[in-house]
Design a binder for these strands. Sequence first.
DNA 1: AATAGACACAACCGCTGCAGT
DNA 2: GACTGCAGCGGTTGTGTCTAT
Length: 305
Amino acid sequence: MRAAMPPINTKNMSTPLEEEESELRRGPWTLEEDTLLTHYIARHGEGRWNMLAKCAGLKRTGKSCRLRWLNYLKPDIKRGNLTPQEQLLILELHSKWGNRWSKIAQHLPGRTDNEIKNYWRTRVQKQARQLNIESNSQRFLDAVRCFWMPRLVQKVEQASPSSSSSSSSSSYLKEMCTPSSVPSQLSSCCTVPSFPTFSPLANKTTDISNSSSVTTQNICPTDSINISDQTEIPQHLTGSNVYGHTTLDQCYNIDSNDYGMEGISFASMSAVGFYEGTSSEGNWMCNEMSDNLWNMDDIWQLRSI
DNA sequence: AATAGACACAACCGCTGCAGT
DNA sequence: GACTGCAGCGGTTGTGTCTAT
């Protein structure tokens, strides 16, 4: 546990200027401060934050006021968990722009750069750490594109099957997951007949992770990506748009109930070369990554139950 | 029930770029 | 061109809450 240190206020010295500064409040905002700020902005609009802070009678820096308004008080801020669509968009945009949080936030109405940044740091980077992959590495990017995003696409399409064909995030992903966008490293490493296209017209979008009939999940040691399943294989993941052609019985078994990251045995992955394989860099993901490994969305939902 | 550790997120800090003087 | 103040951005930290033991 991180030590809960009180914020060090280095402005407790006694020069006149610093005395003034020492009156500045820090830390959590009170309801009264929020009200003051909200009312002032309602009357005078936002901007010129330093002046605003003074005029509104707030003992805060302009910076602090701006942040409070933009990240918390602004009326159009969306609260609650990020939807699969939003997660999808974040992953996609981050793969494009990197840590340009404010730029990414512009494409997610109602979400702040701070929120997106926090999401990335707490959820996405956590998974990268657990996999011993640098979150800014190409490997991780490939993993996100190949496994995480498709899972989210499924989620999105399950959530809105009727509107999925016009879903912007869905079409985004279809584009992302077409062969042209598959990283060369990936396409060369995987004997993927064709990268999956996530057809919104697929009338069956069985969620492997949610299927009670699933008995096994697999980490495939072969050269092919395999997210197939012995019992229920989603239509859109098979047939003309296949991840792989390896059958289930060629793969390792993982307890079907272990859909959480926590349940995955990383040691066993290591045993088949998941971590070590720099010499087989190109095969790292195809060989050992399983669909359930990237079932983040389900994991988070389960965690919240 | 108590406690430690993990997690999530609000808030702060430092830096950069830009506009005004 | 140099200086100053401000806004905005991304990284980091502090702390309340949740979860596991």
